[in-house]
């Protein structure tokens, strides 16, 4: 478990056995540094945030940058987010990397529905955010994937650099840490407010 988390959540419970004689009445002292006290919420969100499994879901040029981010050089695994799964049922994060057409949009919706909770969506690149270069004359391009599914993080760029995608992943991890365990993720998303009819 990470040291930083250790300090944040229960600094006062932990004492350094090197400086003080151990007091068996205090749990942290009896077992040295091997016991951590935390809330269930923090623990689960820590686990969720550092083992994101994204879905292999490349649509256009952003997918190449996504691959470059996962491969040598940028190594997305440092942030615990590069176990790409081919099945939506095994993944937590959908990185919508590329242009979404109307034909594809309905399939994206279906894939999203197949993903288990908790699930997150990261829209990567201008095309997935608002149609990008095709927003004016692209007769078949959806002007933003958020008309089909709720999006947590937007990463702009055409295509975004790998550093930008990593930043997006870090922001997503922050978002996951803030969420409460017993609240279902999809309940936070208000379909009335974000429905396609009103979102223009």
């Amino acid at each position: 478990m990470s040291d930083s988390h250790n300090e944040n959540s229960n600094k006062e419970n932990l004492t350094n056995p090197m400086t003080k004689s151990a007091n068996p009445n205090i749990p942290g002292e009896r077992y040295g540094n091997q016991v951590i006290l935390t809330t269930l919420n923090d623990f689960f969100s820590w686990a969720k945030a550092s083992s994101i499994w994204p879905m292999q879901f490349g649509l256009a040029c952003c997918a190449i940058e996504m691959m470059a981010t996962a491969a040598t050089g940028f190594d997305m695994d440092r942030f615990g987010a590069a176990v790409f799964r081919s099945s939506p049922r095994q993944s937590d994060l959908m990185i919508v990397a590329g242009t979404v057409t109307f034909k594809m949009g309905e399939r994206i919706k279906r894939l999203y529905e197949q993903m288990p909770e908790p699930k997150y969506v990261l829209a990567m690149g201008g095309c997935a955010i608002n149609g990008g270069p095709y927003s004016l004359y692209g007769y078949h391009v959806v002007k933003g994937v958020d008309r089909y599914i709720p999006v947590d993080i937007f990463v702009p760029g055409c295509p975004p650099r790998p550093e930008q995608l990593l930043e997006g992943i870090i922001k997503l991890q922050e978002l996951i840490r803030q969420k409460e365990l017993l609240k279902r993720e999809s309940m936070i998303y208000d379909p009335k407010r974000n429905s396609p009819k009103t979102n223009q």
Binding site: F102, K143, R147, Y148
Partner: peptide
């Protein structure tokens, strides 16, 4: 057929607004 010169962009497709 979209590449015809008099093609009108659709208002919506399956409930999703075009613009």
């Amino acid at each position: 057929h979209p590449l015809r010169k008099d093609y009108q962009f659709p208002e919506e497709y399956h409930g999703i607004k075009w613009a």
